[in-house]
Each structure stands twice: as structure tokens, then as C-alpha cells.
Computed example of a mutant assay.
Amino acid sequence: MMYWDGGGWAWMMFMPLLWIALIGLIVWAAVRLAHRPGGGQSEGDRPGPGPRHETPREILDRRYASGEIDSDTYREAREHLADQPPRQR
């Protein structure tokens, strides 16, 4: 009978590298998930970690709805925002 004995040393070199790569992948995934808010759930329409930033119009609407500003101030601010060109990101 013939036994294949040509690759034993290669496996002995390869297996520690495989385990190091596997452990590294697990650590990388754990760190990546730990840095996302909400346990991996992203907020808003854009992908990626972090909260979604409100637009100036959304901030104005929220402040008016909560009663922080009156209707005259709200109208003035809306007109001012309408005159401003949209900002580029």
C-alpha cells in the first residue's frame, strides 16, 4: 500500500495561520458590531453608524411643534430658509 506523506509539514504550518485568521475575523466582527448604535441597527436613511442629522427645516418644524417658537418666528424662519441655497455635503 502507498501512503501519501508529502504534505504533513505543510498542514503543520498552515493550521496555526488558519486559527490566527479565524480569531482575527471574530475579533474584527465583534469590534465592528460594538461600535454601531442600537446593536447594529443604523438610524435614518443613510448607511453607517451614527445618528441621522436633522435638516434645518426639520429642526424648525420640531421647534414650532413643541411650542419653542411662535407662528410669526416660524414663518420668518421658513422664508429665510427658502431664500438660502441648499448646502452641499
Rank of each mutant, 00 (worst) to 15 (best):
M15I: 15
R46E: 11
L17V: 08
D5V: 06
I26H: 01
P47C: 02
Q84A: 13
E43G: 08
M13K: 15
R46Q: 05
I69P: 15
W9S: 13
P86M: 13
A82K: 12
L17Y: 05
A77P: 00
P51D: 00
T73S: 10
E68N: 10
E58S: 02
P86S: 00
W4L: 05
V31E: 04
S42A: 14
I23V: 14
Y74L: 02
I20R: 02
D5R: 15
A29M: 14
A29K: 02
P16N: 03
W19P: 08
A29T: 09
D5C: 03
M15E: 08
W28I: 05
Y74N: 12
M12H: 06
G48K: 09
W28L: 03
P47S: 03
R36Q: 13
R75M: 09
Q84M: 14
V27N: 04
V31K: 08
M13A: 15
A21Y: 07
L81C: 14
A21G: 10
A21D: 00
D72P: 00
W28G: 01
T55F: 04
P16W: 09
P56Q: 00
Q88K: 11
M1V: 01
P86I: 02
A21M: 13
A30K: 00
D45V: 10
A65I: 07
G48H: 10
M13P: 03
L17R: 08
A65C: 03
M13R: 15
P85R: 14
Y74F: 13
I26C: 11
D61H: 07
P51Q: 02
E58P: 06
H53R: 14
A10S: 07
G39K: 06
F14G: 06
D83Q: 04
P49H: 03
P16H: 07
W28C: 01
L17H: 12
S71F: 04
L81S: 03
G7E: 07
G39D: 10
P37I: 09
G8K: 10
W4C: 06
A29E: 08
Q41R: 15
G8S: 06
R87V: 10
G38S: 14
P16D: 04
A21P: 13
